[in-house]
Simulated scan of single mutants.
Amino acid sequence: MRFLPTRAHGAIDYLWGIALMASPWFFGFADVPAATWVAIVFGAGAILYSAFTAYELGLVKILPMPMHLILDGLGGIVLAASPFLFGFADQVLWPHMLFGLFSMVACLVTHLEPMLTTGYREPA
């Protein structure tokens, strides 16, 4: 069931990216280089592809919303698995898991089409 408007998803995208990039210092794992870099790269990446998404808060509207949601889902899977993939699960686990799971859920509940200028909204 897709109930989240793309405008709200856009706001969440930018806030999520900033929060993920700040998480090493907020959650106290900045001394774990792999965990820190994964958080920074994934956060910056999300902000970057959000800026290029064709939705209400995109700056350069070239990436279709369905592709954006695929990136959110795949990125969420990799982010949630990153503690195991990059060998820091014994030091940092939950921030990456929770941010990744959030991204996976967001891709499943967001409308596929933005309102933009047409006023079209995908039926729920």
Results as ranks from 00 to 15, higher is better:
P5T: 04
F99P: 09
F99A: 11
A30F: 07
L63V: 15
D90W: 04
A35P: 10
G58V: 07
H111L: 15
V41P: 03
G100Y: 04
L48K: 04
E56R: 09
L74T: 14
T110H: 05
M65P: 00
H68C: 08
A35T: 12
H96F: 03
I18H: 06
A8R: 08
D13K: 07
G43P: 06
L59T: 11
M21E: 03
V78W: 03
S50H: 00
L74V: 15
W94M: 14
A19F: 02
I70S: 09
A30Y: 11
E113I: 06
A54S: 11
L108M: 13
F102R: 01
M104C: 14
A106W: 02
R121K: 15
F52S: 00
V109F: 14
L101H: 01
H96L: 02
T118Y: 06
I47F: 05
L59H: 05
R121Y: 05
Y49R: 01
L112K: 12
F3L: 11
R2T: 10
L71A: 13
Q91D: 06
S23C: 01
F42M: 12
A39G: 07
V38C: 10
P83C: 09
P66E: 02
A11F: 12
A46V: 10
S50W: 00
F26D: 01
G28W: 05
K61P: 01
L63I: 15
L71P: 03
F102V: 15
E113L: 02
T118G: 07
A8K: 07
L116M: 14
P123C: 10
T36Q: 13
F29G: 01
L93D: 03
A39T: 07
Y120M: 08
A54T: 08
R2N: 05
L79K: 05
W16T: 05
Y55W: 15
W94G: 00
P114H: 10
T6S: 07
I40T: 10
L85W: 10
G10Y: 10
A80M: 11
V38W: 04
D31M: 10
Q91G: 03
V78R: 02
R2L: 06
L59P: 00
D72E: 13
A106I: 13
I12G: 00
L57W: 11
D72N: 13
H111G: 01
P5M: 06
K61Y: 08
M115Q: 11
T6Q: 10
A46W: 06
A22G: 05
T53E: 04
R7N: 09
L98F: 14
S23T: 03
F84W: 14
T118Q: 08
M1I: 13
M97D: 05
R121T: 15
L15R: 10
L59A: 13
P114W: 02
A124E: 14
G45E: 10
P24G: 11
M67A: 15
P64Y: 11
G28M: 02
L116A: 09
L63Y: 04
G10L: 07
M115P: 00
L108P: 00
M115C: 08
G73P: 03
F84D: 04
A124R: 12
F3R: 02
L57Q: 06
F99E: 09
P123V: 14
F84T: 03
G43E: 10
D72H: 14
V32S: 01
I70E: 07
S82C: 04
H96T: 03
L116T: 13
F88P: 03
G28T: 01
K61C: 02
A51H: 07
L85G: 10
V105H: 02
P5L: 11
W37P: 03
A30T: 05
L63K: 02
F3K: 05
